[in-house]
Amino acid sequence: MKCPNCASTDIGKIGVNQFYCWNCFIELSLQEGKLSLSQVEEDGSLTDLDDLFQDSELEAKANGF
């Protein structure tokens, strides 16, 4: 499994259908066949990064999970 943001393979599972990239510090969630990406902020909140990718990219990358 590779991170769609940085292509690192240093991915950890943090929950059901939830993963974390230890290289670029983003959280990846698989929902309804689509990958959702969020940046974890210093205060623990999440910032949505889905607008940086096209829907077709997120769906295609979700198939790799």
Rank of each mutant, 00 (worst) to 15 (best):
E42V: 11
K13L: 08
C6K: 10
D10K: 13
C6Y: 01
L35I: 05
E42S: 10
T9G: 15
D48K: 08
K13R: 14
K13T: 03
N17K: 15
M1L: 06
E32P: 06
G33W: 01
Q54K: 09
S36N: 15
S38V: 12
E32S: 14
I26P: 04
E59G: 01
N63A: 12
A62G: 15
S38M: 03
N63S: 15
D51M: 10
N63D: 14
D50A: 08
E32A: 12
G64Y: 05
G33T: 08
S29R: 14
T47P: 00
D50E: 05
W22H: 14
L37H: 04
D50I: 06
L52D: 10
S8L: 08
D51W: 05
I11E: 03
V40K: 04
C21A: 02
N63R: 13
A7N: 10
G15K: 05
S29W: 06
F65E: 08
Y20V: 01
C21Q: 02
E57L: 09
Q31H: 11
D50K: 02
L46S: 04
G64E: 13
A60Y: 10
C3A: 01
C24W: 08
Q54A: 15
C3K: 04
S45K: 07
I26C: 05
T9H: 13
L37Q: 12
T9E: 15
L28R: 02
S8D: 08
K34M: 06
L58N: 13
K61C: 12
D48M: 06
L58W: 03
E59L: 06
G44V: 07
D50Q: 04
F65K: 07
C6P: 08
N5I: 05
L28H: 05
D50S: 00
Y20S: 01
F25V: 14
L58G: 03
G64Q: 12
E59D: 01
D10V: 07
Q39I: 10
V40G: 00
Q54G: 03
P4S: 03
L28N: 09
E41P: 09
L35Q: 07
D55P: 02
N23L: 07
Y20M: 11
D43R: 00
G64R: 12
S38I: 00
S45N: 13
N63I: 04
C24M: 13
N5M: 01
I14R: 02
K2V: 11
I14M: 13
A7L: 10
Q18N: 08
I11H: 06
I14V: 12
I14H: 00
A62V: 14
E27F: 12
D48A: 02
D55S: 09
I11M: 13
I26R: 10
G15I: 11
C21K: 02
G15W: 04
C3P: 02
Q54F: 06
L30R: 01
C3S: 02
W22L: 15
S56R: 11
L28S: 04
V40M: 11
K34Q: 06
C6S: 14
S56C: 11
Q54R: 11
Q54E: 15
Q54Y: 00
K61R: 14
G44D: 13
G33M: 03
C21M: 05
A7H: 06
I14Y: 05
D43S: 07
E41V: 07
E59H: 00
L30C: 02
L30S: 00
L30T: 01
L52T: 09
L58S: 13
G12H: 08
E59P: 00
A7Q: 14
D50T: 05
C6H: 09
S29G: 12
C24R: 03
L37V: 09
Q31K: 12
I11Q: 11
